[in-house]
Computed example of a mutant assay.
Amino acid sequence: MTCLIAALCAGLAACATTPREPARVENRYPNAGSRPTPPARVTPRDCGSAYTVQRGDTLSEIAVMCSVPMEELAAANSLYRPYTLNVGQVLSMPRPLMHVVQRGENLYRIGLRYGIPFQQLAAHNSISAPYNLEVGQQIRLPQGATVVNLASRDPSAGSRSTASSPPPEQRRPPASSGTPRFDWPVRGSVLSSFGNKPDGGRNDGINIAARAGESVRAAAAGQVVYAGSELAGYGQLVLVRHTGGFVTAYAHNSRLLVSEGDQVSQGQVIAEAGSTGSVDRPQVHFEIRNGVNPVDPMNYLR
Rank of each mutant, 00 (worst) to 15 (best):
G104L: 03
V240K: 02
F182L: 03
A151C: 10
A122R: 04
V284N: 12
A221W: 05
M98C: 07
A7L: 12
L91A: 15
I206S: 11
Q223A: 08
C47V: 13
A23W: 01
G188Y: 01
A14D: 06
V247A: 00
G244L: 12
S78V: 12
V247N: 01
V279R: 04
A74C: 07
C3W: 11
V100R: 09
A14H: 05
S156G: 15
H99L: 04
N132P: 00
R35G: 13
P96W: 05
L237R: 09
S164A: 12
P198E: 13
V42E: 11
E26V: 02
R171Y: 03
Q170L: 11
Y80P: 04
S192Q: 00
R20G: 03
Y300H: 10
P30Q: 14
D280I: 05
G244H: 12
G235D: 00
G200E: 02
E260A: 15
D296M: 11
G261C: 04
R289A: 07
P180R: 12
Q266F: 03
F118H: 09
Q119S: 12
I208V: 02
E72I: 04
P69D: 11
P155F: 06
P198T: 09
F286E: 02
A251W: 01
A14R: 07
P294S: 04
G48W: 00
N203G: 14
N293P: 00
R113H: 15
L4K: 10
I208Y: 04
R181W: 10
R41P: 14
A145M: 14
I127C: 00
L191I: 14
